[in-house]
């Protein structure tokens, strides 16, 4: 595969994290190469959203290292982290548009804060990005006036307004109907092809993952089960992967003694 000789832009090594005393991620290793679409999959509670938050530098890890564009972010100071984030665009699950601003002002915000462009240039750039997202003419609307799919596309427009090298998308298809979510998939592929971005998508939607991904990584209970190309994942004979592909509920070996303990609530000595 041609990805093999490409540069690694995100390198996660032996990442271990806790929430309180609960272990969420347990030794995660992940490489994302330049210009690929990497899809992180997993069920609810598998730790995929947590992994994303750590890569974005929003949570601090127990141990392990995360290197983004050559910068180690687990030890980086705030200034460096904020500098690095200008190369990263993030579209959050719920859009995270600011309710007090119009859609146009939302998309414009990074430009306004980080550049000295004049009003007209900013307006043109905002219009351009909205046009790409198929959202022409909504600048003056408030986020509350948009539909779910439009909110996600507006969030995507805001994420790419600074032309980042890295784009992260949390659950693009959550809460959307299949048609709208297919549109978003097209957009993601378009962004990679047209703007040369490296894109990391977190989702639990199989269909969309297979459609957009170059490689897929599957997380289960804080551990990575497999990271491979779409082709290889389809043909994988790992039980967890097959369970996921065929939408089978997770089969657990029943530990009778532990099960009884849990039921009775106290250990019989």
């Amino acid at each position: 595969m041609e990805e093999h000789n490409q540069k690694t832009v995100i390198k996660v090594k032996e990442l271990v994290t806790h929430y309180g005393s609960r272990k969420i991620l347990d030794g995660v290793n992940l490489d994302v190469k330049k210009n690929e679409i990497m899809v992180i999959m997993g069920g609810s509670g598998s730790g995929k959203s947590t992994l994303l938050r750590h890569v974005l530098g929003l949570n601090s890890a127990t141990s392990g290292s995360i290197e983004i564009l050559g910068t180690e972010i687990t030890t980086a100071n705030q200034k460096k982290l904020y500098q690095l984030r200008r190369n990263m665009g993030v579209a959050f699950q719920g859009g995270a548009l600011f309710g007090s601003m119009t859609v146009g002002e939302n998309v414009e915000l990074p430009l306004r804060e980080h550049t000295n462009l004049d009003e007209k240039t900013m307006r043109i750039m905002v219009r351009m990005k909205l046009e790409v997202m198929n959202l022409a003419g909504v600048e003056a609307l408030m986020p509350s006036e948009l539909s779910g799919g439009m909110v996600k596309r507006a969030a995507l427009a805001r994420a790419v307004i600074m032309d980042p090298t890295l784009l992260f998308f949390d659950e693009p298809s959550a809460g959307l109907d299949p048609v709208v979510s297919a549109e978003l998939d097209e957009l993601i592929i378009l962004l990679r092809n047209a703007m040369n971005m490296t894109i990391v998508v977190v989702t639990h939607e199989l269909e969309s993952a297979f459609k957009i991904a170059d490689r897929i990584t599957i997380l289960d209970e804080g551990k990575i089960i497999i990271t491979d190309t779409v082709e290889n994942i389809r043909n994988s004979n790992l039980t967890q992967v097959q369970d996921m592909l065929n939408r089978r509920p997770r089969q657990k070996e029943l530990d009778t003694e532990a099960y009884l303990d849990r039921l009775t609530g106290d250990r019989l000595q």
Partner: peptide, 22 residues
């Protein structure tokens, strides 16, 4: 609080805008 729960504060941080300042 709503900005926190709807990830708007995370979004600010990810845009490289410091939420304290902004």
């Amino acid at each position: 609080g709503i900005m926190r729960t709807t990830e708007q504060i995370d979004a600010l941080e990810c845009m490289g805008i410091h939420p304290y300042k902004y």
